[in-house]
Design a protein around this nucleic acid. Structure first.
Lengths: 386, 386
DNA sequence: GTTAAAATGTTCCCGCAGAAAACATATACC
DNA sequence: GGTATATGTTTTCTGCGGGAACATTTTAAC
């Protein structure tokens, strides 16, 4: 609501924007508060009053409603040393969780992620062959049951799945996950039926960036380009003005298939010179002890970053997986070449960083997607006992 | 407010979202209605009632307020043939205008654009040397004065300027417009002082896409990549999920400096193989009668489009200027190569189109930027007699 | 220790927003 | 000309946040 005008989204022209009612106001304010404690951790009611600009009494009513919904807990203040009556501390109730599933070639993993972003429990199963959607769903059900017995009192908002492959914009259909062998699968339906929960499915790189944005290295940054090097190739994602780049069909951010060498080799996708054919895990392993070859790969990475910078002008370029490793060992070279290639006048602002969340990244990101509905309408989403 | 959850923007984490009040509701609804008639032309109150989901009586009150503000006009219905009392027709008041300025190398142009998107009047001055910011502002003042005398009763919301060059995200500073020789100029201040109006400054390609999105070939499309070929190079812009791509500093969408040939020539920007060094107006003119060379340039264009598609997954790729002309004469080749290179599984959805608004594009786009504040808060923006 | 000052929580009342119902009006159809 | 239908208008009602007054809890001053 309070965005700057320059980038404010004008409502779509073909469809008239929905009218707003008083209860939308209430929903918006409940959402603002729950979102604030979700990302910002424990906050006092006084801080919430200042930050939202709402009245003390209004904040009181809103927080009370959130507490009655079982979403936040109010604690007496710790010693602050400040004059005046101490403000109550509002923190998210960690018994509110989302399930996060990550099916991959060699393992399936499920986690229960609390509303404050902490991973409360996880289950992992190694597999010999890539799991089918049904395998993944069955494992999710079993693992969720175990976690529910281990930690009593959990209330689940839904489940998110991070799938290595193309996922349609509907958040349901895995269009093509070549390494898993999934093609045109409505994985949302499969998983929702197994868990009897609302499910949202997304691409793994997108989920990863979402996690780093919420709780990791891209926290609070508005415009981010993410490149993640994994065994299955290079995953890409972008955050544009505080929103995930999705694209018309959901396939946006496939930077691994950006053409980076016009004379490059044929890629599995049918094109030539794709970033991930020039710079991939095998090639990196093969030249690990060849300084000149490493330099060449680092230079390729810098070319890709420079290209993405002139398209997106990000505040931050985030590197994960083997791309993060490569950056770590060739940071001066990459930085220098990016700066040299940078089209932008104020190159001193170019920021490149490695991911921060490690093995929890995909679980946290998938859970974030599942939490989105609750954060947007705290009073309108039903929680289910696990 | 009624977006799908998949791409819903989660409020920034570091800053707590502002609280919402009842008057925000009113503002939102006024904005929805004015925006609807701005883009959708005359609409009946009955249609507005259905589309917004608001109550008849509420719509009545809102429309009355907009009419009292002098922003819309209510007309008796034309013959519809339908049973029942005819609904009043709501249309934007065309006396509400924005000024639009386009300073370029060889000319300066100013237009008065009505709130329905029509260009009511324009003034153009050819110049021998690129104008200074002060030249442009002085011309704007003089031309505005003339138009004000020619068409009495106009009420101005503000002015927008489309500048061929890098404009900072603040909507004020021209960071570098090489062809004009402007560098680090606060053109907003210069122009605002001359016109005594609120001013917003933007990049010409961004303004162009905004215009085509509002009233042209990209109307109603949510995700668009725009490439415009002009004498000063290739301008780029993108619309991502209904929002203009801006980037952290405002330099997003510079697709002309995307590296398209890894072995290409040096570009003026310091990099090599930039799209606009491989494919530019001079080169296109030079090979206009050489079919093979034209094919090669068309193929380069297709490569660029394919790259942008894998990054943005747009619903539409929009081509303007000489790139539109090139596409017109080599459409089968470009289409085929884009489809061949397309990474996306459902390539049948790739849409490429030429721009539709012609010489009015930049004026309309700049005016749109100026109208944005009014559309967002119809009751909160003061109009000034021209 | 007592009192004052400061900050916050709580309660009650007000104004404003849109919803809903009742009523008024304008058209088409028979 | 009467009726059905759709829409504009007026009135009443509910819900939300603001704000003032009061209550509570702390620190600081004496």
């Amino acid at each position: 609501m309070s965005e700057d005008l320059a980038s404010a989204a004008v409502p779509a022209h073909t469809t008239v924007a929905r009218g707003s009612r008083n209860d939308n106001t209430r929903r918006h304010n409940l959402s603002s508060l729950l979102t604030a404690v979700h990302y910002g951790g424990p906050l006092t009611r006084a801080q919430l009053t200042r930050d939202t600009g709402l009245n003390r009494s209004t904040i009181g009513g809103l927080v009370t409603e959130l507490a009655q919904l079982g979403l936040v807990i109010e604690d007496s203040a710790a010693e602050t040393g400040a004059v005046g009556r101490p403000s109550l501390i509002v923190r998210p109730d960690r018994r509110v969780v989302a399930l996060a599933l990550h099916p991959d070639v060699d393992a399936i993993e499920l986690g229960a992620v609390a509303i404050d972003g902490t991973v409360l429990a996880r289950r992992r199963a190694s597999v010999d062959a890539p799991p089918t959607p049904q395998d993944a769903a069955a494992f999710a059900w079993e693992a969720a049951r175990e976690i529910g017995q281990e930690i009593p009192g959990l209330r689940v908002v839904g489940a998110g799945a991070a799938v290595p492959g193309l996922v349609a914009a509907d958040g349901a259909t895995v269009v093509d996950a070549p390494h898993l062998g999934w093609r045109g699968v409505d994985f949302r339906e499969v998983l929702a039926e197994a868990l009897t929960l609302p499910v949202v499915v997304g691409n793994d790189a997108n989920m990863g960036l979402r996690a780093e944005w919420s709780f990791g290295a891209a926290r609070g940054v508005d415009t981010v380009v993410f490149l993640n090097g994994s065994a299955s190739g290079i995953g890409g994602a972008a955050l544009v003005g505080g929103r995930m780049l999705r694209g018309g069909r959901g396939y946006g951010g496939e930077f691994g298939h950006m053409m980076i060498r016009s004379d490059g080799e044929r890629c599995s996708c049918g094109r030539s010179g794709c970033l991930e054919t020039v710079l991939n895990a095998e090639r990196l392993d093969a030249v690990a002890h060849d300084d000149a070859a490493l330099d060449a790969l680092a230079s390729t990475l810098a070319d890709a970053i420079a290209n993405l910078e002139c398209a997106f002008d990000p505040d931050l370029v985030l590197l994960g997986g083997y791309l993060g490793s490569l950056y770590a060992v060739r940071r001066p070279l990459v930085d220098a070449r990016v700066e040299e290639l940078a089209f932008r006048p104020d190159v001193e602002d170019v920021a490149i960083a490695r991911t921060a969340l490690g093995g929890n990244r995909l679980l946290i990101g998938a859970a974030e997607r599942a939490f989105a509905a609750l954060l947007q309408d705290p009073a309108g989403v039903a929680l289910v006992a696990l």
